[in-house]
């Protein structure tokens, strides 16, 4: 596809998602109380977006990923929350 075709196909959708992210950050700012480990991970991923590397999707996923390599002693429940917390409970 040409850049023009990519813009024709995806610009409005990406614009919509971008503004959703902006509104989410505004909403967080207006809210009270402390944020947790998920917000710094989100901000790390945002920094990737404004870089000019060719693998931004991969790097954004890495910003949320557990970087350790050893299995954990016991599964802390079943679910995943979307971002890695260094001191898992």
């Amino acid at each position: 596809m040409t850049r023009q075709q990519v813009l024709d196909l995806y610009f409005l959708d990406a614009r919509c998602k971008l503004i959703e992210v902006a509104a989410f950050l505004d909403r967080l700012d207006r809210a009270e109380g402390e944020a947790d480990f998920r917000l710094p991970a989100f901000r790390d991923a945002l920094r990737v977006l404004s870089s000019d590397r060719p693998d931004r999707a991969l790097q954004a996923l890495m910003a949320f990923s557990d970087p350790t390599t050893e299995p954990v002693p016991k599964a802390p429940g079943k679910g995943a929350v979307g971002a890695w917390q260094e001191t898992q409970p």
Partner: peptide, 13 residues
């Protein structure tokens, strides 16, 4: 393979 933050490590293991 695991979900979200656990996927990359779990895939490697």
């Amino acid at each position: 393979t695991p979900h979200l933050e656990d996927k990359r490590k779990g895939t490697r293991l």
